[in-house]
């Protein structure tokens, strides 16, 4: 993650080059009157972190496998063995 951030940070000049067209000056685009200052370009749109979501989704898969296997095991006793009276 640190490595990725560093790479992204170092690549900012490159991005500035390719970002087309440069953000128009705030005055040119009729800025919101109540907050004319602090207008900036939105960052690049890369998700940071989010491992909790990964663990939640994979965890749901693992729990599901175990849960369904247990349900099959439990129900096994429900059905009488073949040939039983």
């Amino acid at each position: 993650m640190k490595w990725l951030s560093l790479v992204l940070f170092l690549s900012l000049p490159v991005l500035a080059d390719i970002a087309k067209p440069p953000p128009p000056a705030p005055a040119a685009v009729a800025p919101e009157p109540q907050h004319p200052q602090g207008i900036e370009k939105v960052p690049m749109g890369v998700i940071e972190g989010g491992w909790a979501y990964v663990y939640a989704a994979w965890g749901a898969g693992l729990l599901g496998l175990v849960g369904y296997a247990v349900s099959l095991y439990v129900r096994r006793s429900e059905a009488p063995p073949p040939g039983a009276p």
């Binding site: 087309k20 440069p22 953000p23 919101e32 207008i39 900036e40 370009k41 939105v42």
Partner: peptide
């Protein structure tokens, strides 16, 4: 592209 204005 170029149209985004964001006031944090």
């Amino acid at each position: 592209p170029g149209s985004v204005l964001f006031n944090t």
